[in-house]
Amino acid sequence: MIEVKGLSKRFGEAQVLTDISAVFRKGRVNQVIGKSGSGKSVLAKCIVGLHVPEEGEVLYDGRSFHKLGKDEKRAVRQEIGMLFQGGALFDSLNVMENVMFPLRMFGTTDVKGMRDRAEHCLHRVSITPDKHRLYPGEISGGMQKRVGIARAIAMQPKYLLCDEPNSGLDPQTSIVIDQLIAEITEEYSITTIVITHDMNSVMESGDSILFIHKGRKWWEGGREQLLHSDNMELNEFVFAGSLMRQVKGAMGG
């Protein structure tokens, strides 16, 4: 479980996040939605400690991350997997080496054990062995995301953060990635946070949704409530697309 309490973050004069509190539960996909520029990525980076918030705390199963010492922070970080908006695979390493990287750095098994684990993770995200020797520049964006997931789960993380896992992907591939994240979350009982502005994926797998607007927590709930909420900004966001308006019309809303 990850708990965020009263989090605020400024960059110079710009107040990006204001007093955000939320609870992200274990074994399920917790979604964070909001318009472009609302502060979702900054929130994710505060949670994993890439940004230091001015106020508030982030608790990893009770451990207040920003109050920990350097070594303890490293220890917590090794329990976190993160999938970046652009994949963030290492260009100089091939697919296999990318997934093996965290294992090489922190793993406790021998090389054979690491290789097996990496192969298992790649298999889990349906990357076939003929792709293992290719470099990130030689595989498609969707594959890069999947390799990113494989790398993120290599160390068997307790926490998984995904920043827009399906931006730039076709709807079909998006669904595959969403399902993959959902399956992995359940299978290994991970606390997963997914940042997205893709309504498709919200309707697909959103049990627990947090809506950020102008850096504040504006609304939270499940997807059923999402469709019937009378929150104006949320409605604007959710029903911006004509498809979602039709959904609402069909329900007699």
């Binding site: 980076k45 994993v48 890439l50 922070k73 490293r74 220890a75 970080r77 090794q78 976190i80 993160m82 970046f84 963030a88 290492f90 990287f101 965290p102 750095m105 922190f106 160390m155």
Partner: peptide, 8 residues
């Protein structure tokens, strides 16, 4: 960032 997150 990816390196930092891993604790490297």
């Amino acid at each position: 960032d990816a390196l930092d997150i891993m604790g490297v």
